[in-house]
Simulated assay, not measured.
Amino acid sequence: MPDYFHGYAVVGLVAVVGVLFVAAAFGAGRLLRPVVPTPEKLLTYECGVDPVGEGWAHTQIRYYVYAFLYVVFAVDSIFLFPWATVFAEPGFGGVTLVEMFVFLGFLAVGLLYAWKKGVLAWT
């Protein structure tokens, strides 16, 4: 039983060391940085352009939808490579084929939804 938990102990120790390292870095940064707030430092800064007008701006939602669709198809392509390697293994062909069709079905439903909403129209 101790050998079984040894792997978890190593992972836990690495996680604790990582959290302590990040906390020490943030603490050192907080102690070493100069804090001199001025009105110029408190202004919004973007690409060297002084802010003009109100801080509220409307954004087109379709750009987020395009990004979401990209993520969906990127996940699809990432899932295809391990599936192709497992599909070649003996005894896994039928099961992995069904899993892939279920996965592609979910993607097709998402694509159909985006098409019905008019997201894929380049107008």
Rank of each mutant, 00 (worst) to 15 (best):
F26H: 06
P39A: 09
T59G: 15
F79M: 15
V14Y: 06
W56T: 10
A15C: 12
E54D: 12
M100F: 11
E54F: 09
V36G: 09
G93T: 13
D76L: 10
P34K: 05
P82W: 03
H6Y: 14
G7H: 13
T123W: 10
L69G: 13
G118D: 02
A57E: 12
F68V: 15
F21Y: 09
V11D: 09
F81H: 04
W122V: 13
P90G: 03
F73E: 04
G110A: 12
V95I: 03
S77H: 13
G91Q: 02
E40I: 09
T38D: 05
V17N: 05
T38E: 04
E40L: 14
F5Q: 05
V36I: 09
F73I: 02
G91A: 00
D76T: 12
F103R: 06
V11M: 05
P90M: 00
Y66E: 14
V10C: 06
L120P: 08
K117C: 01
Y70A: 14
T44C: 14
W122R: 13
A9Y: 02
G118Q: 00
V14S: 08
R62D: 13
W115I: 10
L32A: 05
Y8A: 09
T38I: 03
A108W: 03
T123A: 13
T96P: 01
Y64L: 14
G48R: 04
R33K: 12
A23N: 06
Y66T: 13
I61P: 15
A88S: 06
F92L: 00
L80S: 04
V86P: 02
V72N: 03
A23K: 08
F81Y: 08
A108G: 04
A15G: 11
T38A: 06
V75F: 08
V19G: 09
F103Q: 05
Y8S: 10
Y66S: 15
K41F: 04
L120S: 07
L120T: 10
M1P: 03
P2W: 13
L13R: 06
G18E: 07
P82F: 04
L69D: 11
P51Y: 05
V52A: 07
T85Y: 01
T96I: 00
W56R: 12
F26R: 08
A108F: 04
A108L: 04
A121H: 10
G7E: 10
F21W: 07
V11P: 05
P51C: 05
T59K: 15
Y63L: 13
D50C: 09
V16D: 00
L97E: 02
P37T: 02
K117L: 01
F87G: 00
V98Q: 03
Y45V: 00
P2S: 13
P82C: 09
K117R: 05
V95K: 00
G27V: 07
L69A: 14
I61F: 15
W56D: 07
A24I: 09
V98A: 07
A57S: 11
